[in-house]
Structures are given as C-alpha cells and as structure tokens.
Nucleic acid binder design. Structure first.
Lengths: 165, 165
DNA sequence: TTGCGTGCAAATCTTTTGCAGAATG
DNA sequence: CATTCTGCAAAAGATTTGCACGCAA
C-alpha cells in the first residue's frame, strides 16, 4: 500500500510531531515515548498505510509498541487532524492529512495502489448537490476504482505472446 | 438504514429473480430454496441494508436461513450484478444494482440515512481524471458526508430553547 | 446417484476493552 | 503523588470456513 505522493505539500509552520504535542497538551494528555515514536515513524516515510504495516515498521526501529497502543494512537492522530482514515478492503487505511491539500483517489484493483488527485470542480459539484438537498457537508470521499497504467501494461505484456498461439 | 429510492427505476426485461436463476445456471450452480427466498426478499422491499437486517427480515417470513448462507448468497448477488456493496461504518451495506441507474450518496452522520443522487457531471469528471492518469475505470464510489436536512432541524429545535438561558 | 449447498459451530480478522503495573506531569 | 498510559490478554463484531448431511440436477 506504500505509494509516493502525487501532490505538493502545503507549507506548514510546525512539524507533525510538534502539532501532536500541542494537541496532547491542550487536552491534558501525556506526551509519551510511544506516542512520539508513532508520529515520527508515520510522518517520516508512510503515506498510505494500515495498522499492521505501521506495527511492522515500528518493530524494526523502535522498542516494540503494543498493538492496542498503536490503534489508540492512530485514533488520536485522526482526532488531532494529522491523519485521515478510510476503509478500503475491509481494513482501515490512513494517510497524512496535515500538510497536504484535500484530494481523492484512484484505486487499482490489481496492485492495490492509491493514486491521488485534486479537483476543485469536484468540490464545487459536491457543494452544489448538497445545497440542493439541504445537506450540511462535512466532507466527502471519492474512490475511482479500476486498473492503473502499470498493471495494464503488465497485463498486456503477459497476454500478447499467448494471444498469438 | 431503510430508505426510499430517490431515483426512477430503469426498465428491465426480466425480474431480479429471473436474472439470478440465469446467473446460477450459467455457472452450473444450483437454484435452491434459500437462494430464491433471499433474492425475493431483497428485491421486494429492501434498498440499502446490511446482512443483519436481511437476516432479521428473512426470519419473519421464510424458513430460517443460516447466517452463513446469507453471506454466501450476498456475495453471489454482487457477482451476478444484482447488488452493489460498500463499506460504511465498518459494516458492509448493500443496495440494488439491477434496474437502477448509477448514482452516489449523501450520508448523514446523525441518522445514518443514505440519500441518493445522480450526476452526469461527476461521471465526466471521473473519466477525465482517469484518462489523465492512464487509468482504466471500472467504477467509482462517492460518499458525501454531513448532516441531513431533517437532523439539522431536530438539532435546532433541541438547541434553541436552551440557548436563551 | 453425484456432487453442490446448507447449517452449525468453530475459526478468522480487525479493532476494542478491562485491568494491573509503568510512566508522566 | 495522582493519574494517565501501556501491555497483555481476553472480548467483541463481522465475516469466513470445515465438515457431515440434505437436496437439486
């Protein structure tokens, strides 16, 4: 599920870690080793990931952090506005929400890759639909599914020789 | 999660039950009492529903069908193109896909209601984005979340008197 | 008759929770 | 020091699966 970011990052004044500490303190929560390791690891190299991938990557560098703590911290990071969560194939996947512009995804059914794209038109369309329905929008999630360019190539490469028989 | 359809149905030549039988036979699968009861029940009154709601409704009219069989049959109905599935709040919800036009949803966070809407613009936008990315589209899912008109009213009704204190 | 399908219960998978001890403010 | 956190293990919620028997073709 790892994947490079397609969009430019937004200029932000403080690091994700600083933001998280701010968030924790503002709520009287404690700044623990585990919480810091988790933010650091997430914002150092992850973009789209699920709980298991994060747990695996934590096991390599840091002291082992329990599954429960990872789940609890992920919830806090979403709460703090640093991460965004969505449910893909049954499992929850997360992505950075701090320092990145609003965007949506193309999801490849073959390789599970997520490709990002931003569209102002889409937001306008969304707001128009909502207005028409007296609906107060808080957000949206568009996932376009299909086959990515790479997988189409692979498919053709694998098929062509046989097609000639 | 029950909800009326907002869109007109498309004219279809055969009933969902007939379609399902066709599908089963074309694959050498058997036409069983359970499978028939399930299609009938679903297309007689459900639109958006989850496995549990279906199981509950089956328990009332028909002979009890096991949970496992319901899950297995739902998969087959999706496969047959009669139902569409999406994951909402952790659980899978289904809706009719046969005899209904492509559409998307507004999802109320308060009452969990799904409101349907169709937008050609959205499809055009989707295809444009895909084309730009060399992506072959097979479908998409847009969920606009927020608060529906009804829940906004309820909220105001409950709040106003207290706000005056 | 020949399997495919069903029901049951047990197994999975993912996420959540209760609790005693560890760490933070 | 008073609490909040963590880790562990057990619980929970949803869906899947193995298996023996029943039923469609």
């Amino acid at each position: 599920m790892a994947n490079e970011f397609a969009l430019e990052s937004i200029e932000v004044s403080s690091s994700p870690r600083e933001r998280f500490v701010e968030y924790l303190q503002s709520r009287g929560k404690r700044v623990t080793q585990q919480r810091l390791q988790i933010v650091d690891r997430i914002f150092e190299r992850h973009d789209h990931f699920d709980a298991d991938e994060l747990i695996a990557s934590l096991g390599q560098v840091d002291a082992k952090i329990s599954r429960a703590t990872v789940y609890r911290t992920l919830d806090e990071l979403v709460d703090a506005g640093l991460l965004k969560a969505m449910t893909l194939t049954g499992r929850r996947v997360y992505e950075h929400d701090y320092g990145y512009p609003q965007h949506d995804h193309l999801h490849c059914k073959k390789c599970d890759q997520l490709i990002e794209f931003a569209s102002d038109e889409l937001v306008a369309l969304r707001d128009a639909v909502a207005r028409k329905n007296g609906f107060r929008v808080t957000g949206h999630r568009l996932i376009i599914s299909g086959i990515c360019a790479d997988c189409q190539k692979k498919q053709n490469r694998a098929k062509s020789p046989l097609d000639l028989i």
